[in-house]
Computed example of a mutant assay.
Amino acid sequence: MKVVVIGGTGLIGSKVVAKLNAHGHEAVPASPDSGVNTLTGEGLADALVGADVVVDVSNSPSFADDDVLHFFRTSTGNLLAAETVAGVGHHVALSVVGSEKVPDSGYLRAKVAQEQLIKESGVPFSLVHATQFFEFVGAIADAGTVDGSVHIAPVSFQPVAAEDVATLVARTAAGSPLHGVVETGGPERVRFDEFIRNVLAERGDQRAVVTDPDARYFGAVLRGAELVPGPGATIAETTFAAWTSHQAAAVR
């Protein structure tokens, strides 16, 4: 089976390509670096020749509200149109757990718009909703830093390893279209502010973590369980401690 992975050289995409190829599929990474630009449509038709499945794990280069909405609407529209012409039988897209619950976030509004285009396209599809990745914990702390302190809301948080997300995306691509959503998150549900506080302490980061109910996440205020998957989700196995240990071993 030929699978074209849009964003196939990135954090998730490169892992998806490797996993699919390891299981006997023909997974082809596609990105601007390989001459495939979903924003302009350049190279799309050629890239999709003979493709059975398209996996879209691409992301906007800018998270500004207007930019990210333009990216997902234009990129996804071009991609779906090219898939229809090429006769692609399955479109798989990676999105975010809770995106529909956080309308104040420009980024998450853009992800909802992307999903709507996919659902209305007529192309058989599967949507994978993932919680935040372990890999971005440091970036979350940096984004929440105000005057030297890290402001984080006291809400539920269930981060996941990118490796586990890639496994689910690859399995979904190899299967039949769901015509719906599968959610995934890590094995540990924690309180967001306490988790970030503990992680920074373990890393020797001296910044204080302030428990702030009004702290913003992707531009939005969180009030409860927006960042955790619902019933029936696929729960990954890798704990944060195991992931941290693996990362440390990899750099030795």
Score class of each variant (00 low, 15 high):
residue 219 G to Y: 02
residue 179 H to R: 11
residue 123 V to I: 08
residue 122 G to E: 03
residue 197 R to F: 08
residue 204 G to D: 03
residue 178 L to S: 06
residue 183 E to Q: 14
residue 134 F to L: 03
residue 221 V to A: 08
residue 189 R to V: 13
residue 128 V to A: 10
residue 213 P to A: 01
residue 220 A to F: 02
residue 146 V to F: 04
residue 168 L to C: 02
residue 113 A to W: 01
residue 187 P to L: 00
residue 177 P to S: 00
residue 175 G to N: 01
residue 220 A to Y: 04
residue 227 L to P: 13
residue 145 T to C: 13
residue 122 G to I: 02
residue 180 G to V: 01
residue 139 A to V: 08
residue 156 S to C: 09
residue 116 Q to I: 05
residue 171 R to P: 07
residue 208 A to D: 15
residue 136 F to G: 06
residue 120 E to T: 14
residue 173 A to V: 00
residue 124 P to M: 00
residue 182 V to Q: 06
residue 114 Q to W: 02
residue 162 A to F: 14
residue 184 T to D: 02
residue 132 Q to P: 14
residue 177 P to Y: 00
residue 224 G to H: 15
residue 184 T to V: 07
residue 165 V to G: 03
residue 221 V to S: 10
residue 220 A to M: 01
residue 160 V to H: 13
residue 147 D to C: 05
residue 125 F to I: 05
residue 209 V to F: 11
residue 142 D to Y: 07
residue 225 A to L: 12
residue 211 T to E: 13
residue 195 F to W: 15
residue 190 V to S: 14
residue 145 T to M: 10
residue 140 I to K: 03
residue 179 H to P: 09
residue 206 Q to V: 15
residue 212 D to Q: 06
residue 194 E to F: 03
residue 128 V to R: 09
residue 195 F to R: 07
residue 184 T to A: 04
residue 215 A to W: 13
residue 178 L to D: 00
residue 116 Q to T: 12
residue 195 F to E: 09
residue 140 I to T: 14
residue 206 Q to L: 15
residue 119 K to H: 13
residue 119 K to Y: 07
residue 114 Q to Y: 06
residue 222 L to C: 13
residue 223 R to P: 05
residue 159 P to L: 00
residue 118 I to G: 05
residue 122 G to V: 01
residue 195 F to N: 11
residue 168 L to S: 02
residue 204 G to W: 05
residue 164 D to W: 03
residue 226 E to D: 08
residue 181 V to F: 05
residue 146 V to P: 13
residue 203 R to E: 13
residue 120 E to N: 11
residue 145 T to F: 15
residue 175 G to W: 00
residue 152 I to V: 15
residue 210 V to F: 08
residue 151 H to P: 12
residue 189 R to T: 15
residue 134 F to G: 09
